[in-house]
Nucleic acid binder design. Structure first.
Length: 567
RNA sequence: GCGGCUGUAGUCUAGCGGUUAGGACUGAAGCUUCCCAAGCUUCAAGCCCGGGUUCGAAUCCCGGCAGCCGCACCA
């Protein structure tokens, strides 16, 4: 536990990072507005993520709709949550699947709605299996927001509960765009929605939130990434689901099977780099492997980046090897061919024995059904035909006896130049709002009553404060001009001439502005201004013309030393 | 969703059936050659919403909403 989250939330509200949404109407739990500083911070975090994944790793960024038809979530398994109805014991509080309690009392419990289930439970006087207490009426958990598209009854649709599905369903497009090579990656930054039962803890559990997700599609036998070799010697602290926390290199972790494969290891590393870059405190971060029971049944491996913040250890990022589950699910449900083609080094001649129907004999015998019988014959294994006088083939539920004169077993030669394969997926999934809140939490420092947000230059919403020591005698004009120059250089600057100079510094410190520029009476004589570094309160005189470069230098880290070396 | 606690300016808070609802910080305007929330003057801003009890409610009761803490949930 690092600090009281309420204090941080107060600051956020006071200074324009965050506001409870729709506050004048009493608000709505689980929704927050980002104020100007919060929106800027969020943008900076997202921008850096984009720089790493899109520019750095060559992932393809796409942007899919938030509303999606029901079929998508039937395939993904998300609608399964709707069929789960729960009852709670009024005495001991334990919860049970309602359909499980009526097994044996009804032929198809899963088909019942909550009223029918409730009646069935009452009629049969079903009590709590563990303590015998009274049960509540069945309730369904509905974690997706449901809506309908179009007029009248419309078509059932949902707000996406994650951005990932948009990338899975677009695999073929992304694959083709990437010139039909594996691995290929897609990313998406966007909003997702979950109708949480009880959202709490500020930005940690929202009903509408932002995700940055990447889907890396890989060859199932080659789960690596080109840059793995550059980072494999890096050491990370890992909390595996078996044994004690360990400090080891990525290479050792993969060799020891602590991390399932090289690609997963690489993106764990990239996640760590991202976290440090945006200013999270390394001593308050850990990678925790999902427990066996926590992991989805199809997942080969899954690691969470957790941060220690005021609420305790909190999941910020999940990095999972999802195998072929998602893509395969969409293949099965949609019938689309979401496969990659693996070309063999040399085309192979494949010889195969197949059953070939003899239409000359089938036609007169089966007339209109001949085609269907032939199809059935083609599907038979050679082994089930060999040495028999005839076989039976099912046509429209009817068994037809087919004499051996109607088919023959032949050797078929085929040239095969490759094979289709369903890609495996490694999914790094980042919760933007949680990351943003953790960045603030880790940046928050307090000395007596003086609060400083030690935000890194990369993410700070405002890069520099610019003040005239006095708002007169032309100092204000010089300061205004400097402010303009900074803005022109793409650096968000904030002009302030109200109150004492100390108060103005304090204002900037509290919102994490990395440096301040002060114009004083000397400036008019020597053309220099004071640049002050937030975290040390140290100052340096620099020429006005060099201010934008000085600020840039300071933002890139390393303090005032490199600034004084500027020429 | 259940149970407990809570709700007063932007923030923190005083109030305990009758107050012009008080303060601190912040904010705004101004004075002050002002480099670390200095000082002074002036100003702005509040009882979560809706019912009820009462001559009278920020205060008591009920409902809603929101927040916190536990339980459950977190696909």
């Amino acid at each position: 536990m690092s600090m009281d989250p309420q204090e941080l939330l107060s600051l956020c509200k006071r200074r324009g990072f965050l506001w409870p949404a729709y506050d004048i109407y009493g608000g709505l739990a689980g929704l927050y507005d980002y104020g100007p500083l919060g929106a800027a911070l969020k943008k900076n975090i997202e921008e850096h993520w984009r720089a790493l994944y899109v520019l750095g790793e060559g992932f393809h960024e796409i942007s899919c709709p938030i509303v999606a038809p029901e079929a998508v979530f039937k395939a993904s398994g998300h609608t399964d949550a709707f069929s789960d109805m729960y009852v709670e014991c009024t005495k001991c509080g334990e919860t049970f699947r309602a359909d499980h309690l009526v097994t044996g009392l009804h032929e198809a419990p899963a088909s019942l709605d909550e009223k029918q289930l409730g009646r069935l439970l009452k009629e049969n006087k079903v009590k709590c299996p563990s303590c015998g207490g009274e049960l509540t009426d069945p309730k369904r958990f509905n974690l997706m927001f449901r809506t309908s598209v179009g007029a009248g009854k419309g078509k059932v649709a949902y707000l996406r509960p994650e951005t990932a599905q948009g990338m899975f369903v677009n695999f073929s497009q992304v694959y083709r765009f990437g010139r039909e090579k594996l691995p290929v990656g897609a990313v998406q930054i966007g909003r997702a929605f979950r109708n949480e039962i009880s959202p709490r803890q500020g930005l940690i559990r929202l009903r509408e939130f932002s995700q940055m997700e990447a889907e890396l599609f890989l060859h199932p036998d080659h789960k690596s990434w080109p840059r793995y070799k550059d980072v494999k010697g890096q050491v990370l602290e890992l909390v595996p689901n078996k044994g004690k926390p360990v400090k080891m290199t990525l290479e050792d972790a993969v060799k020891a099977k602590t991390i399932a494969n090289e690609a997963l290891a690489y993106f764990i590393w990239l996640t760590y780099k991202f976290a440090i870059d945006v200013g999270l405190d390394a001593s308050k971060l850990r990678f925790r492997q999902h427990l066996e029971k926590e992991m989805a049944h199809y997942a080969a491996d899954c690691w969470d980046l957790e941060a220690d913040i005021g609420y305790g250890w909190t999941e910020l990022v999940g990095i999972a090897d999802r195998g072929s589950y998602d893509v395969q699910a969409h293949i099965s449900h949609s019938g689309a061919d979401l496969t990659a083609f693996e070309r063999f080094d040399e085309p192979k001649e494949v010889e195969q024995q197949v059953v070939r129907p003899n239409f000359g004999a089938l036609g007169p015998l089966f007339k209109g059904k001949a085609k269907q019988v032939a199809d059935g014959l083609s599907k038979l294994h050679v082994g089930s035909v060999a040495g028999k006088d005839g076989v039976t083939v099912e046509v429209d539920g009817e068994m037809c006896s087919v004499p051996s004169s109607c088919y023959e077993v032949v050797l078929k030669k085929e040239k095969v130049s490759g094979r289709k394969l369903v890609p495996h997926v490694i999914e790094p999934s980042y919760g933007v709002d949680r990351i943003l809140f953790s960045v603030l939490d880790h940046a928050y420092t307090q000395k007596d009553d003086y609060v400083t947000l030690r935000l890194k230059g990369l993410v700070a919403p405002i890069k520099a404060g610019v003040f005239p020591l006095m708002a007169r005698d032309g100092l204000d004009e010089i300061a205004g001009a400097i402010c303009n120059e900074l803005t022109k250089a793409g650096l968000a600057a904030y002009y302030d001439d109200s109150g004492s100079i100390g108060r103005r510094y304090a204002r900037m410190d509290e919102i994490g502005t990395p440096c301040c520029i002060t114009v004083d009476y000397e400036s008019k004589k020597d053309g220099k201004v004071t640049i002050r570094e937030r975290d040390t309160a140290k100052q340096l005189r620099v020429e006005i013309a060099k201010v934008p470069r000085a600020v840039e230098t300071l933002l890139s880290g390393g303090g005032l030393e490199p600034v004084s070396a500027l020429r």
